[in-house]
Design a binder for these strands. Sequence first.
DNA 1: TAGTGGTCTAGACCACCGT
DNA 2: CGGTGGTCTAGACCACTAA
Lengths: 289, 289
Amino acid sequence: MDAAHLSCFNAPMNESPRGGAGGVEAGAGETPTFAPLYRQIRALLLRGLQSGEWKPGEAIPSETELAARYRVSQGTVRKAIDELAAEHLLVRRQGRGTFVASHREVRTQFRFLRLRPDEATLVASDAAAPPEGGEARGESGPGLAMASRVLECRRLRAPGEIARALGLRAGEAVVLIRRLLETDSRPVVLDEIWLPGARFRGLTVERLDAWHGPLYALFEAEFGVRMIGAAERLKAVAADRSHARALHVTEGGPLLLVERVSWTYGEHPVELRRGYCVTERHHYFNQLS
Amino acid sequence: MDAAHLSCFNAPMNESPRGGAGGVEAGAGETPTFAPLYRQIRALLLRGLQSGEWKPGEAIPSETELAARYRVSQGTVRKAIDELAAEHLLVRRQGRGTFVASHREVRTQFRFLRLRPDEATLVASDAAAPPEGGEARGESGPGLAMASRVLECRRLRAPGEIARALGLRAGEAVVLIRRLLETDSRPVVLDEIWLPGARFRGLTVERLDAWHGPLYALFEAEFGVRMIGAAERLKAVAADRSHARALHVTEGGPLLLVERVSWTYGEHPVELRRGYCVTERHHYFNQLS
DNA sequence: TAGTGGTCTAGACCACCGT
DNA sequence: CGGTGGTCTAGACCACTAA
């Protein structure tokens, strides 16, 4: 990671024809072929994150140091970091530094868990940052920590439909996890999780059982796969016999089906998940703005 | 709106003890009692929006003019506007100016309509701004324009539960709208919409029938109520007899229930909505990031 | 006390837009 | 062409954090 990667002339603006609203040619055949400086810095930071140069939970270099390294002003680095922080890829902490976001932190761990008990208040003031204090409390917060019981975890060849969603060729190896989430030993969610086999070698039932905490934290810590985004589709469906038995509901009763494709850096899909949820005492929460 | 509203000493920073990370005392008993300058500017802009000084679709003064008016630098105004633009309250248009967001624009009109036909692609590249061209096309885009058939619109006294959600006293006047959304003359959503009577005087079936376009655009244009956010709860429920008849589904079959509380400026709730959706050919879409 | 992110300013130049 | 937002810089000072 060096200033040489920057595809522009990096003298101070007053002496160069660079500045302004436009930008400069992007390096190495990127799609836009033209981007402002701070987006190039952003791309460099992104590369560092993707390559594992800075790992989840670790601090990246200070703004001053990055500015010196890339030969740009601190303000430009700042704007690049601002964007990555807005996307929850980085977390800024005043006085301490800027850190790579991690699913092991309580802060972010509920962004991907939208199922909540009905007692939670409807009017959410999540938008504003919370008072930044309850970081150590283990399991309160908006979502509830549900107990996970892994039913199976096996490797098989990807059916066409799964392969398509994960960007694999049909027949490539995938991992299938089936698990049950429960509260008060009442089953709430039946999950079916598909992962590309290549990235998740060595993922077994034992490994899953030994892990206490969010699944994505395991993926990040053990397999270097950090989930950064997902798209979900929700439907109401009727429970079939197997669902009914696993979830202790009547056959034909209503279930909330949540289909999710989640991705890592570069919008590369790495998980397909189907969750069948009992919504008698829980609901899926969403905030529009 | 005048510089006098600013609760701080507005000389250039080098001559004043203001600058820095902290901020200055907020005016008139606000909650935080302390906020950086750009947040005060933000609050002033917000006040202008809320008071109707600048109406949806109109341009607000230029950054330069606002900077002069409030006696701060353009960068500070800029940061305030950045936040409001990120919350979709303002829309920046290079070369033209900054405009008050409006539900009449196609751009924003699908942010509150999450139900989509199943044919829509799952992997969404919504995150990046679209190539900014198809602004005039009427009804393509991610969501589909469903035909609305108003079943009833009447005024009544708010039941306790409704009053609580809308921040009213039980028994205050509310408007109840019931409507059916359909595609290809197939019913898809049965909506039940509760509004505070005081803000929506003169809302009738005729008024609704005469309006072609999003409901929120009507609210904004005719009643000066601009929706800026909402919280939703989703559940899977079994269709009762009346739902079954209205939606042409079998009694007991699965329906997606979407409960929504939406609010205007100041997070003041102004709508409670319950939608029962048939998800045979449609799904609720959500993007996590 | 030294280092970090956070705020604010001032000024330059640019791309875009309507006229 | 003049005005608007968009980018970039340089430098100052502040609040917060850890040693």
